[in-house]
Write a protein that binds this DNA or RNA. Structure first.
Lengths: 240, 240
DNA sequence: CGTACCGTTGAGGTGAGTCAAAGTAAGTGG
DNA sequence: CCACTTACTTTGACTCACCTCAACGGTACG
């Protein structure tokens, strides 16, 4: 085991998946690992480039963006420490169907396709685990939640906060929640399918109503119950 | 091999996947198959119900719909003959994350989880194939294409036609395309994130411009090039 | 201390949702 | 085969949330 292995400590998804595989295979994987650093704004991988391996975010944050066949750009996920990226394209033997851009400075572990696939061939249980993981990964589908038409920007913004709660929110002694978001207004707009100006206006509204307070990229939510209440202003939907 | 096996003839996805597996395992799977019939409007399976097996559409058409945590309903896929449904939830050991509703009368093959998983355990190559299939299935992500904000309903409708081209379009002698859609206006609206009235208006526009002509649920496209031209009126996107 | 990026604010235009009502197709029973 | 009901589709008028454009204020960083 490499002495630089910080992935286990940080709850790396991949390390959880390969737990229990024979030590020899594990070491082969470890040896093949490459660690890269990306600065804010850099692309970790790009859509339509070949998927040559599996990326695992050790530190920092990244955002996944998809450009469809007609040129529409859609951000659909924020990736945090420990999370894997790009495995869908890897197992699909396809080029990357999304781009990953560093939101903050990132340290990224990279495992080459050959060594990963080598382990898969000798360890069938691992294939099952990846199948399981892939099946539960909703991928770009998360984005749907955030861009249903007829849901106001204000509510979509609240949805985003709720989705990011586990990864970016922390509870303060007074029971309020403090977010430290790695996102600019523009990024938020990309995620909820809106424009920076509209994001600002929605923020003003939420502050006016005392639901959430934004200072720079920190968000303070005094009362989570009120945030949930906002989300429940969902449009009554019809029978189909 | 069961004499009622019509799946192979119709190019069933599952049958392609299990091609080449040992005959004994194949027969076990075949014996466990159940064939059900659903009428238009009936649910084939429902979101949040347990995923007890794999569904394979033999004939007819169905639509997959997802209701998110906040009650927003989103249709994201039309399923046609030969296509599998519900395998994502099956392999994720999760309840169904979508509902499947019959658009027309449907014949559905059902393979119980136990017999399918039995084969997976004895045939590792099959797990790899499912992994591959799952990785390439964009699932609800298809929906993203159809509901990017700031894309007019008219263009989203054209996107839908292009997506459904392979499955529902046929080329006539005069090089025009004739669609036979199993969708009502309401369904189209669900798929492109719009309302039946808006769908009608968009249809009127396309007819006015001679791009496509809708009669009941049949669509005639005299010149595919013009349809593509419509789609390329994509909004110029900025650098992020 | 300046440059560049980010964020905010305002004014104006519009695509599409909503509501309501009429028209059309489809299915049912006599 | 025709009344009748039901479901689907279309049309029009109205309204509004959000996009767009443009200008200004802040913040970060050299």
């Amino acid at each position: 085991m490499s002495s630089s292995n910080a992935c286990q400590a940080s709850g790396c998804e991949l390390m959880q998946l390969v737990s229990g595989v024979p030590e020899f295979e594990f070491n082969v994987l470890e040896m093949s690992r490459r660690v890269d650093r990306f600065e804010s704004g850099q692309d970790i991988f790009s859509q339509n480039s070949e998927a040559t391996g599996l990326h695992c975010l050790r530190s920092g944050h990244a955002m996944l963006t998809h450009v469809d066949a007609f040129g529409n750009k859609t951000a659909f996920r924020v990736v945090g420490p420990g999370e894997m990226m790009g495995y869908r394209s890897l197992f699909g033997d396809d080029v990357h169907t999304a781009s990953a851009r560093a939101l903050t400075s990132c340290t990224v572990c990279f495992f080459p396709k050959v060594s990963l696939f080598g382990i898969l061939d000798t360890t069938p249980i691992l294939v099952r685990r990846f199948l399981h993981t892939l099946a539960r990964d909703r991928g770009p589908a998360d984005g749907l939640l955030l861009r249903s038409q007829h849901t106001p920007v204000r509510v979509r913004l609240v949805y985003l906060l709720l989705i990011l709660l586990n990864d970016y929110g922390s509870k303060l002694p007074d029971n309020s929640i403090e977010y430290r978001l790695p996102l600019k207004r523009h990024d938020i707009g990309s995620l909820i399918g809106s424009r920076p100006e509209s994001v600002t206006r929605a923020i003003r509204e939420l502050e006016h109503d005392g639901v959430a307070f934004f200072r720079h990229r920190n968000v303070s939510v005094p009362d989570m119950a009120r945030l949930f209440a906002e989300a429940n202003i969902s449009v009554a939907d019809d029978s189909t």
